[in-house]
Design a protein around this nucleic acid. Structure first.
Lengths: 123, 123
DNA sequence: CAGGATCCACACAGATACTG
DNA sequence: CAGTATCTGTGTGGATCCTG
């Protein structure tokens, strides 16, 4: 188990760091957001996050699966193989917290008032 | 601003990654937990997290200050100089989410049922 | 389509020693 | 007491190419 190992960082199992560890991959938070509303195929996720290399996306998805956040479902359609990725129950409950972090971030960023000419937008 | 820069990782300001960025330093979550109940001096924090090197602790605190989560207050007591670190308002509101992440982590870890002989304990 | 293999670059943090 | 200055190592992710 990936994040459970990380959660032992400070010498003992720390639930907080476990949660953070699960989301701390560079693209994991975005992936959870993408899957929050509907299951998606690998290619769909990939196209929705173009700047994330395929191999990296595969790694992040694999870790989220190890951690029981994302479920994978292989679909043989004739010769083609597609993979459906969806949130598990744990994943869905995590998504609730993700939304709160997003909301906190929006308030936080809007308090910084002086943003260099880009606008804040929700994930 | 430290985390605000990080939040632009995916090509646009992402509040969610901003929040995660603020807490993503190796010891930042623990630091916020320590300051959650009361302000502490540098040495006190240091003693409460012995495995974190001084220089690293100083860095993490500095970044949390840059991000407006922790406030620093220097106290000249005769010749000695002490520094009080406390949560700002933003820090306090962040602590609320931190608690939820901790609770989620506890449920998550307890669902993994088979833990290698250490017990789960809250931060 | 959905990855695996390989190699590499860089940010982050640890060790150690020094200052006001 | 509360940091700073270097110097170094490792984890994490990126680039590129290959496969079933």
């Amino acid at each position: 188990m990936h994040a459970a190992r990380m959660s032992v960082r400070h010498g003992e199992y720390c639930p907080l760091d476990c949660t953070l560890g699960i989301l701390s991959g560079k693209w994991k938070s975005i992936i959870v957001c993408r899957l929050m509303h509907e299951p998606l195929h690998f290619g769909e996720i990939h196209r929705s996050i173009p700047s994330c290399p395929k191999r990296t996306l595969a790694m992040q998805l694999a870790e989220l699966e190890e951690d029981g956040i994302v479920a994978r479902q292989v679909e043989h359609e004739g010769a083609v193989i597609r993979t459906r990725h969806s949130l598990t129950e744990s994943g869905a409950s995590l998504a609730t917290i993700v939304r709160q972090m997003d909301e906190w971030g929006m308030e936080y960023l809007s308090r910084l008032s002086t943003l260099p000419d880009k606008t804040v937008q929700a994930a």
